[in-house]
Computed example of a mutant assay.
Amino acid sequence: MIGDKKTYWYRIRNNRCLIPVTGIYEYREVKGFKNKIPYHVSLEGRKGFYVPALYQVSQEVDQHSGELYNLASFTMITRHANEKMQWIHNAGDNKHRMPLFLTPEIEHAWVLDALGDDDMDEFFHFEMPSDAIAHYPVYSIRSRKPKPEGIIPDAYYDWGTKLPVYGREEPPAEQASLF
């Protein structure tokens, strides 16, 4: 990635920024469920953290007035998912991807002016360990329908015993009747 000087990424590689987050949301396909299950994903022991990104500011023309204005945009850096995120982000065109989660020290280093291409390559090879990632299912994050009474948008939601726990692909077996 670093050496490919023809890519757009290469041209904006020095426009580094950090996106402040308290977590991200990701969907998991679960056998036996009609819809994918949304999960809140964060870093263990951190109420907030930063995800590295690249930004650009382009000059655009207002089609009605002809005036010039600046339009800023950014893109979050992602990588191949670690074991836990592969389990959560297990379907779709970009399955097995995850944001480039970093330690606090590496987050701060991401925006240093002195960061060179070789240094950035080290960032891209950093993998947050699975045990450093916290996750829990939530009710819904995209629906326009009102949530049922008492559902808090980003709070833990109990989908019942059919939802497998991390590390097990199949839901827990139903207890057989003793009678």
Score class of each variant (00 low, 15 high):
Y50V: 00
Y156R: 15
Y156E: 14
V21L: 09
E127A: 13
F74N: 15
V57M: 03
T161S: 15
K95P: 01
Q63R: 14
K162P: 00
I2M: 12
I77D: 04
D154Q: 13
W87D: 02
D117M: 09
G23R: 01
N70F: 04
R46P: 00
H89E: 06
Y156M: 05
S73M: 14
G150I: 06
E127Q: 11
I133C: 02
Q86N: 11
I88V: 10
A91W: 04
G66S: 09
A53S: 14
T103V: 10
T7R: 04
E105K: 09
Y10W: 12
V111Q: 10
P99G: 02
K36W: 12
Q56P: 00
H135E: 08
P99F: 11
P104H: 04
Y8M: 10
N70S: 11
M85K: 03
F33V: 05
L163P: 02
G116C: 09
Q175F: 05
P20N: 02
Y39S: 07
V30Y: 06
P38K: 02
L54C: 03
I19H: 03
E29V: 11
V165E: 10
I133A: 06
F179M: 06
R79L: 02
Q56I: 04
E83R: 14
F74G: 15
A176D: 10
D154E: 13
L102S: 09
H89Y: 00
A134S: 11
E67D: 11
P99I: 12
L18P: 00
S130T: 06
N70W: 03
F179D: 11
G116P: 00
A91E: 10
N90E: 08
A173P: 11
E169F: 06
